[in-house]
Write a protein that binds this DNA or RNA. Structure first.
Length: 270
DNA sequence: AAATTCTCCTGAAGGC
DNA sequence: TGCCTTCAGGAGAATT
């Protein structure tokens, strides 16, 4: 499923095909995604030129002088560039038509979103209250620690809650806490500053590593099969319940926190 | 306000 | 072989 690294890779993959190109129309085959795709989206964007393609949290933004198309991939979405006239397959819900190509959204489970934000997209309700980008210089232990102290939820739930830091999904939350040696069940306000420092460092580390691996799929981005298992070999705990920890051989444990599967090593994480 | 639970959807996996 | 049930997952909405 698309986590921040995959969204980053997706944005980078489509950017060179879109910047400087003008939207001709939008075809919506299935409007019922996470939210209804605006019925007048085609009319809104027609004639607008893509000035930049950026990412905020797990949103991919197609920016024009009038406003931005907000794209979210949910957990099964993907974007690709295909030639005009390419036959749509199952779950190909939305096409953005350009003069010589199509940007096509496929989303099996329809948890994704396609929205239009007039004006400054960062003022949109979905974006305006988001926390910091984990890979930004502003995301530091000094920033995070006071926020941790104010919350009593499990630290894993806190990390996945976009109010403090965005883009850390279920897989990377488990992986980051393993690398930081912190039990996912610890309350946010129980962390020491030193633990907060480790947490910030490993979040950056694990996301950066995954983006580098995502770069591999970038090459054949327009090729649908280029997406299999690109980070699975670097997972230490996620999906490994009952198997031995790579560090100490202790059996990896699984429990549910905030309705999410959480994996951890009971010996390496304290 | 903060924490918890519910919700959307599809396909894979497990049970019988 | 096949049908039925269960479950995962991003993140806003609803509820406690």
């Amino acid at each position: 499923m698309p986590e921040l690294p995959e969204v980053e890779t997706t944005c980078a993959g489509i950017r060179p095909y879109l910047v400087g190109n003008t939207l001709q129309n939008v075809i919506v085959r299935q409007a019922q995604l996470r939210w209804l795709v605006p019925h007048d989206l085609g009319r809104q964007v027609q004639g607008l030129t893509i000035e930049s393609v950026t990412r905020r949290a797990k949103y991919c933004l197609l920016n024009t002088v009038q406003g931005s198309v907000i794209l979210h991939l949910g957990m099964s979405g993907n974007l690709k560039i295909v030639p005009l006239g390419t036959v749509a397959n199952k779950h190909d819900h939305v096409d953005f038509l350009f003069a010589d190509k199509i940007l096509r959204l496929n989303d099996q489970r329809r948890f994704g979103a396609v929205l239009w934000a007039k004006g400054d997209v960062h003022q949109h309700p979905l974006l305006v209250n988001l926390g910091l980008e984990p890979l930004s210089d502003a995301f530091t232990p000094e920033y995070l620690y006071p926020l941790l102290l104010k919350r009593r939820v499990a630290v894993k739930v806190f990390v996945m809650d976009g109010r403090a830091v965005v883009g850390v999904g279920n897989i990377y939350a488990s992986e980051a806490l393993f690398r930081a040696g912190i039990l996912p069940t610890r309350t946010a306000n129980s962390l020491t500053f030193a633990e907060c420092e480790r947490l910030v460092a490993v979040i950056k580390q694990v996301l950066q590593a995954a983006i580098l691996q995502g770069g591999t799929t970038l090459k054949d981005f327009v090729n649908p099969q280029g997406k299999a298992g690109y980070f699975s070999q670097s997972l230490n705990v996620y999906g490994r319940a009952g198997q031995g920890c790579y560090v100490c051989q202790t059996s990896i444990q699984l429990l549910t926190l905030g309705q999410r599967a959480s994996y951890f090593c009971p010996l390496c994480q304290q």
